[in-house]
Amino acid sequence: MRRLASDTPPTRAQGRTAAEGARSRAERDPAYREARAEYAAIRELAKQYPVAAHIRERRYELGMTQQQVAEAVGTSHSFISRVEGGHLPGLPVLQRILAVLDEDFELTIVERVSVDEEPQRSTIRLPDLVAS
């Protein structure tokens, strides 16, 4: 039986796979190990709470703490922790959180139709509810 190139993981110039290289780097670099662990936790969170995972990931990318986000939003650290744990806040609060994370909020409504029809989508950009 002939072996296809897609049957084996791609190797780097050093003769090892990307996964092997990442494991090796994680062993040597504590910051890299921490980042890998954080993104693994975010991927797990996203399976059940995609909005919470998005907020946590964006905060991590910006290098902000939950306390910093809370202060900028005008809420408590424990509230931001609950949001990142899966609690979905009201739309005005969610919009303020996303604004602190340099993001806008859009809502897409999809009309339920039969399987053979293309659904009708309406995307709404919410007005700026954040006080100027």
Rank of each mutant, 00 (worst) to 15 (best):
M1L: 08
R2A: 07
R2K: 14
R3K: 12
L4H: 07
D7F: 08
T8I: 12
P9V: 11
P9S: 07
P9K: 09
R12T: 13
R12G: 09
A13D: 14
G15L: 02
A18I: 10
A18V: 03
E20D: 10
R25V: 09
A26K: 04
E27M: 03
R28T: 01
D29H: 11
D29P: 08
A31S: 13
A31R: 15
Y32S: 00
Y32L: 07
R33Q: 14
R33E: 11
E34W: 04
E34P: 03
E34K: 09
R36I: 15
A37Q: 13
A37W: 07
E38Y: 06
E38T: 14
A40G: 13
A41F: 10
I42A: 13
I42C: 15
R43E: 14
E44F: 10
A46I: 04
A46D: 06
Q48W: 08
V51F: 12
V51G: 00
I55L: 15
R56K: 15
E57H: 06
R58S: 02
R58D: 01
R59E: 03
M64A: 04
T65K: 00
Q66C: 05
Q66H: 08
Q68I: 03
Q68A: 13
Q68G: 08
V69N: 02
E71L: 12
E71Q: 11
A72H: 03
T75S: 14
S76K: 01
H77C: 04
F79V: 10
I80W: 11
S81I: 01
S81V: 02
R82Q: 12
V83I: 15
G85M: 06
H87G: 04
G90C: 05
V93G: 00
V93Q: 06
R96K: 06
R96F: 00
R96T: 05
L98V: 08
L98R: 12
A99L: 03
V100C: 04
E103T: 00
F105S: 01
L107H: 08
L107G: 00
L107E: 07
R112T: 12
R112I: 13
V113R: 12
S114R: 08
D116P: 01
D116H: 06
E117S: 13
E118W: 04
P119Y: 00
I124D: 03
P127T: 05
P127D: 01
L129Q: 13
S132C: 04
